[in-house]
Amino acid sequence: MIAIKGYRHGLLIVFNGASETPWLTHLRELEAKLDATPHFFRGSSVAFDVKDARLNEEDLRHAIDVLRAREIKLWAVISQNAETCARVRSLGLADRLTSASAARPQEVVKDSTSLPGEAGDGLFVRRRIRSGQVLRHPGHIVIMGDVNPGAQVIAGGDIIVWGRLSGAAHAGALGNAQAVVCALEMSPTCVRIAEAVYIPRSLEHGQRRKRTAQMALLKDQEIIFTSWDVLTHKSRFERR
């Protein structure tokens, strides 16, 4: 059984009971999972938690290949098995979730579920997301700050931007069509919800989008924007 967890700086794929089932079976399950929601994982770098499974070099190389074919990078494998850890190190991967080069991962979100919509955990970020930065989390993402053009926010659940959304946002990236994107100022370069894509028409030179709080949601396979009036729960649907 595979679970995808998020912690502050990345994704962790947990292989529960990896020692009981053959490794290939796990990899097949992983492949199926990755292929079901390719947008969520593409371009990410992930860590494995293989529990006490004993993996040889070939097993690990196989896993790396499976990921590489989907533009995903494996950077760490944690395991309770000393032999697995040794193989991991010999392949030049980290065997713990603290790396000197990458920003150190902070608290691991205690429980996350791969079932979207039930994603109980959220990632709260209080800063500006700048061009080239990608925020990726299997649960919900709440950002206090702006999302600049060129930045990407990818969530398994909802995305809430307490600020201006000018970059790209993908809510429900693990397949949840109920997910929404909210922003105090909605001027994205691209909004995706589950499989649907919305790209706003380009503005005339000097023209500015209205500064209004809006919510993007999926209705009849199409992304629509409503004024986001959470306090009164009144939603006025409007097409853009």
Partner: peptide, 13 residues
């Protein structure tokens, strides 16, 4: 400005 945004992000990280 866009490139500067990227650079500032990298510097912050």
């Amino acid at each position: 400005v866009r490139d500067a945004d990227r650079v500032i992000g990298l510097a912050e990280s």
